[in-house]
């Protein structure tokens, strides 16, 4: 096909810090698939949960300004972080529906609000824009025998009418993407449950309780690993996994991959191109056992 897919890219704060491997693997995977990503120049924080929690107008204004910055780059806006994705989509949705809020935001950013640009999560680009057939055709090292628990968390699919990525109660987009990479997926109970997200800072006890239930469910379903599309879910499930095992006297040892890392492996990218060494739960023994390294 001669139409090259081109996107403006909004990595979000986490991808420039604690989720560096998500940024790295996204860039490497998209370049391997021939999809062009151009980072939005000097993008800034979308406000995430804390901003809309206490000041919706601030949250909408920060996102509207970022959407304006993204206009400088050709193509739809590709977003990796589920939280940034949700905030940007919420902003478009709210400002389209509510004229008063739109006027307030225009005053706050001192510019007209532009809502025509499309905001897309990486999953959407892989499953719909590139398409599962083309994705499957790029696979050179199928993830055969790897049982993956796809974890959506909250913000990729909820609420109805806002992210419009997939069905909010029974989504399949993650499963379809990783199955196109040759992996098996497991059916499990907690794929849409909340991990506690940013309570990791203020109330980590809450996060431990919620993530323990998630890890327990994935393990019980026979998963070898978990796949996520959100740096906060990743932080809570991967970075805190040892602590969860200690507190709840459990043994999970479930590596937590970003979707771009697993798909990246299947198209033949090397571990250092995918930042596998940045994962806290070491995935090497599992990948060696399955003959994927």
């Amino acid at each position: 096909m001669n139409d090259t897919l081109k996107y403006a890219y909004y990595p979000g704060c986490s991808l420039h810090a604690s989720a560096g491997e998500y940024d790295l693997s996204t860039r490497e995977l998209f370049s391997a698939l021939g999809i062009s990503l151009t980072e939005v120049p000097d993008w800034f924080c979308c406000g995430a949960t804390p901003a809309h929690n206490v000041d919706e107008l601030l949250s909408l204004s920060l996102c509207a300004k970022n959407l304006e910055l993204a206009e400088q780059v050709e193509g739809d806006l590709a977003v990796a972080c589920a939280s940034c994705f949700s905030r940007l989509k919420f902003t478009q949705h709210t400002l389209e529906e509510n004229a008063t809020k739109r006027k307030q935001v225009e005053k706050a950013i001192d510019a007209p609000v532009k809502l025509d640009g499309k905001v897309k999560h990486l999953l959407e680009i892989l499953a719909k824009d590139l398409g599962l057939e083309r994705l499957a055709a790029s696979v050179s090292k199928p993830l055969a025998g790897l049982k993956v628990a796809c974890y959506y968390g909250c913000l990729l699919t909820r609420p109805t009418d806002v992210p419009n990525l997939d069905c909010p109660e029974a989504p399949t987009i993650m499963e379809r993407v990783v199955e196109a990479s040759g992996a098996e997926t497991v059916a499990w109970t907690h794929r849409l449950e909340c991990c506690g997200a940013n309570f990791t800072l203020s109330r980590p006890g809450v996060v431990l309780q919620l993530t323990n239930a998630i890890l327990d469910s994935a393990k019980a379903a026979g998963a070898d690993c978990i796949m996520v599309g959100c740096p906060l879910c990743h932080g809570n499930l991967d970075i805190r996994q040892k602590e969860i095992e200690n507190v709840y006297s459990a043994e999970y040892n479930l590596p937590v991959f970003y979707l771009t890392q697993l798909v990246g492996l299947s198209v033949g990218l090397a571990p250092d191109q995918l930042g596998l060494n940045a994962m806290i739960v070491n995935p090497t023994p599992l990948l060696k056992e399955k003959g994927l390294l």
Partner: peptide, 8 residues
Amino acid sequence: ASCETCST
């Protein structure tokens, strides 16, 4: 947690 389950 702003998980949006209730709104959904």
